[in-house]
């Protein structure tokens, strides 16, 4: 499963009502650490596709989603379980930090 682009329109169906945990990466094109984080998130998604769904929210295009979850620093990665926030990681992370979230 590839990484999803999440928007206002599909967020509820894809992220909140998902059967498996969902990791959401809040990012923007002009944010350097976000660009460094992106391939790490992609690799994590690829390697854990049976355990977790991975989506990305572009905060420029989806300011309401960023606002709803109180994102004030990017990149921020939020893990949702059963529609609830289970964990939040702020800033550039190693892949192992993402793996620890779903252990």
């Amino acid at each position: 499963m590839s990484v999803l682009t999440l928007t206002q329109e599909n967020f509820e169906a894809e992220a909140l009502k998902s059967e498996i945990p969902v990791l959401v990466d809040f990012w923007a094109a002009w944010c350097g650490p976000c660009r460094m984080f992106s391939p790490i998130v992609d690799e994590f998604a690829e390697e854990n596709q049976d355990k977790v769904k991975v989506g990305k929210v572009n905060v420029d295009e989806q300011p309401d989603l960023a606002g709803r979850y109180g994102v004030m620093s990017i990149p921020t990665a939020i893990l949702f379980k059963n529609g609830e926030i289970a964990a939040t990681l702020v800033g550039l992370q190693q892949k192992s930090a993402l793996e620890d979230l779903i252990q």
Binding site: C31, G32, V59, A66, V71, M72, S73, I74, T88, V90
Partner: peptide, 17 residues
């Protein structure tokens, strides 16, 4: 408070303010 008001990267987080 990192990500809740504390930042080390103005170009990353400026727009939230």
């Amino acid at each position: 408070l990192r990500g809740r008001g504390v930042s080390y990267c103005a170009t990353c987080d400026g727009m939230f303010y």
